[in-house]
C-alpha cells in the first residue's frame, strides 16, 4: 500500500453555474521515503493540490489517503513549507520555530523545547538571527526559517509548495542543497511542487507534470535514474539528465502548444468592399 495516495480526486470551487473545476481526476501514489516533484505551469492548481494533501482543503470527490487513512484535517505528520513563507511577523525567528515545536511536542519540557528550537535554527544556519523578526531578514533567510519550522515538528512527510519560487538563482541553489541534505539524513517522504524542471530533476526521484487547469490533471511520470548525491555541475553532462530533461520539457511544450491550439480560432472576416462613388 502506498504511503500517500490520491484516488480520482476532483476539486471544484464555487457552486452551480459559477463552479470551476480546478483539479480533475488526480491519481497519485507516493511510497515511503520517496522524493516526488510535481511540475506545472503557474495557475495550474498546484497550491490547491498541496492544500488537499496537507488537509487544509477537502476534495469535492475522490479520496486522499495518508498511510491508508483518509485525510480529514491537518496533521503534525505532514509538515508544510508554504510558498510565501507565512512566518508570523510579530514573532522572532526563534519564537516562530518554538510555536511549532511546542505544538508538536506538548509533553516535552521547556529546556527540551528550547534545545530543539536552537538545533533547528542552527541547522538552517540562522543562529545569529534567532532573535530577529522576519521583516529584518532576506527572502532566503525567511524561507530557511520556514524550513526549520516545518522540520522541527519532526513530520513524517514534508510538503513543499514552491518553496524556492521567490528566491534568486544562487540562494535557490544553496537552499536546494540544504533541503536535500536534511532529507537524505533520515529519508523522510517528500513532495515538492515547483515550476522549475531543473529543480525537479536535481532533487526528486520522480517527476510528475501537472497539466494546466482548469480541469488540471497529472500527466505521465518521469523517473529520474541519477545516483545520489547528485552533482549540479556534472549533471549538465549526464546523458540521463539530458534525456529526461528534454522529454519533460517536450511534454510541457506540447501541452503549451495544445493549449494555444485550443485558443486559436479562425476569425471569418465579413465580405466587405469599399463602396464606389465613381460609377
Amino acid at each position: 500500500m502506498a504511503y500517500l495516495e490520491l484516488k480520482n480526486v476532483y476539486k471544484t470551487y464555487g457552486q452551480g453555474a459559477d463552479a470551476t473545476e480546478v483539479l480533475t481526476d488526480i491519481n497519485l501514489s507516493i511510497e515511503e521515503g520517496e522524493f516526488v516533484a510535481i511540475v506545472g505551469f503557474t495557475g495550474s492548481g498546484k497550491t490547491t493540490l498541496v492544500n488537499l494533501i496537507n488537509g487544509l482543503l477537502q476534495p469535492t470527490s475522490g479520496e486522499v489517503l495518508f498511510k491508508g487513512e483518509p485525510v480529514k484535517d491537518t496533521s503534525h505528520d505532514r509538515g508544510v513549507i508554504f510558498q510565501n513563507y507565512s512566518l508570523l511577523p510579530w514573532l522572532t525567528v526563534g519564537q516562530n520555530v518554538h510555536m511549532a515545536v511546542r505544538e508538536a511536542f506538548p509533553k516535552a519540557s521547556k529546556s527540551e523545547l528550547q534545545k530543539r528550537v536552537r538545533d533547528f535554527v542552527d541547522m538552517v544556519s540562522l543562529s545569529p538571527a534567532i532573535n530577529k523578526r522576519p521583516k529584518e531578514l532576506s527572502g532566503g533567510m525567511r524561507q530557511r526559517v520556514a524550513v526549520a519550522r516545518a522540520l522541527a515538528m519532526n513530520p513524517e512527510m514534508i510538503i513543499m509548495d514552491e518553496p524556492l519560487g521567490a528566491l534568486d538563482a544562487l540562494t535557490r541553489g544553496n537552499l536546494q542543497d540544504e533541503i536535500l541534505n536534511i532529507w537524505s539524513k533520515d529519508k523522510r517522504t517528500a513532495l515538492l511542487i515547483t515550476n522549475d524542471v531543473d529543480e525537479g530533476i536535481y532533487m526528486a526521484d520522480r517527476i510528475i507534470p501537472l497539466r494546466p487547469g482548469p480541469n488540471a490533471t497529472l500527466g505521465p511520470e518521469f523517473k529520474i535514474d541519477i545516483e545520489r548525491p547528485r552533482d549540479k555541475t556534472a549533471l549538465n553532462d549526464n546523458p540521463v539528465y539530458k534525456k529526461t530533461r528534454n522529454a519533460i520539457i517536450e511534454y510541457l511544450m506540447d501541452i503549451g502548444n495544445e493549449r494555444k491550439a485550443v485558443v486559436q480560432q479562425e476569425y471569418v472576416l465579413p465580405d466587405l468592399s469599399p463602396k464606389s462613388f465613381v460609377a
Partner: peptide, 12 residues
C-alpha cells in the same frame, strides 16, 4: 489567510 493556514497546520 496565510496566518490562519499556519495556525491550522500547527493545529493550534
Amino acid at each position: 489567510k496565510d496566518y490562519i493556514n499556519v495556525a491550522k497546520v500547527l493545529k493550534l
